[in-house]
Write a protein that binds this DNA or RNA. Sequence first.
DNA 1: CTCCTCACG
DNA 2: ACGTACGTGAGGAGA
Length: 406
Amino acid sequence: MHLYETMDLPLLPVLARMEDAGVKIDLPKLRDLGDRLGSEARAKAADIHEKCGEIFNINSPKQLGKVLFERLNLPRPVKYGKGKVISTAVDVLEELAESHEAPKLVLEYRQLTKLKSTYVDALPMLVDSAGRLHTTFNPTGAVTGRLSSTNPNLQNIPIRTELGREIRAAFIPKEGCVLLAADYSQIELRLLAHFSEDLLLVEAFNRGDDIHSLTASQVFGVPPMMLDAEHRRRAKAVNFGIVYGLSAFGLSQQLGIEQREAKKFIEAYFERYEGVRRFIDRVIEETRREQKVRTLFGRIRPIPDINSKNANMRGFAERTAVNTPLQGTAADLIKLAMINLDEEMRTRSLQSKMLLQVHDELLFEVPLAELETMRDLVRDKMQNVHKLRVPLEVEIGVGPNWRDVE
DNA sequence: CTCCTCACG
DNA sequence: ACGTACGTGAGGAGA
C-alpha cells in the first residue's frame, strides 16, 4: 500500500465536496468594512504625506525608501538588503518608528490597504449567487504534503489583529446552522515528542502540562511557580524555533535580544532536552546519506542540498530536513482524519458540511440538531486518527461566525 | 514577468 | 566569513 492509495487519492473526493459546498459570506458586513478601511486609509495617507512633506506613492517600496532614507535621512537598517532597494519591511519600520512619526503611520496604512485589497475588495467578486465562496484546494500544493488553497486562498484569512478579525466575522453559517472549528493543539511539538522520544517532552504531554511553561522553566532555570508572561513568551519562540530548525541569529531577531543570549538559550534547551538533540542529529545524518526525508507515513521530500559545499545552502537544507517530518506528518494526520470524518458523516447521512482545512484546523457548517453529534464525532476522529506516544488534543469552538467560535 | 511585502499555519 | 528560523498565495509596483 502506498501513500497515494491510502491517503492522497481518497482525499480527492473529500476536497471536491468541500470546494463544492463553499462557505457563506456576509456581504453587507464586508461592504461596510470596506468603506471604513477606505476612508481610514485615505486619512492615513494624507497624514503621511504631510509628515513627510511630499506626495508620493506609499505602496511603492522604492518611493517610500527614498522619502525615509534620503529626504528624512532616517538611519538605515544594519542589513542593507543586498539589493538596490533598502528594505522597508515591518521589522525595519518598527525600528525607525523610534526616530520619526512616519514609519508607524506607514505600518498602519499598510495594514488598512492590505486588508482592503486582498480580502474586503477581492472576496466579494468571487461569491456565487447563493452568497457562498468556493476555494480550490491543491492536494500537492506544498512540498511538505500540506494542502494549499487558491482563488481565493482561504487559508490566510486574518486573525491576528482586531481589525483583521472583522473579516473573519464575515464568514458565517447558513440559516439554522452554526460554524464549528476544530484545531489540533501544538501538533508539531507533539510530533517532535513522538519522533524524538525525549523523556521530558513525552512525559509532559502525557501529563497534560503547559509545554511552553515547561520549556521556560527548563531553559531559564526558573521554578514553575516563578514564571511570568515574558518567560513564557520567550519559551514559546524557542519551541517554534526548534520546530523550524533554529539558529541563534533567528531566535535573537525574533525576540529582539543579543545573539549571544539567544545562543545561551539554545544551549540550555539542548542540555535539558537531550532526546530532541539526538533526534535532530539523527535526521540530519540520515538525510545526508539518503538525500531525502520521510514523514511518519512515508511521504518523501528530496533534500539534495544537504551535502552542498555552500554552507548557506546546507544550512537551509538541514533546517528543512528537521522541519519536514514534523510539518509533513501533521499534514498526513489531518488528511487521514478528513477522510475518516467524511466517510463517517456520509455513512450516518449527516447534513453537516466540512468546509475548510487550514493546516491544523477544520471548519464545519453544522445544523443545530447535529451539534452535539458533530462535536463528539469530530473530536473522536481527529484525536484518534493514529496512535502516537503522546495524546493528540483537539480544541473545538462553535459560534455564529468564524471569528466568534469558542 | 520579478520583486517586495504581508496575510495565514 | 557568510547569511540565517519552516511552509504557502496574493496584490501592487515597476520593468
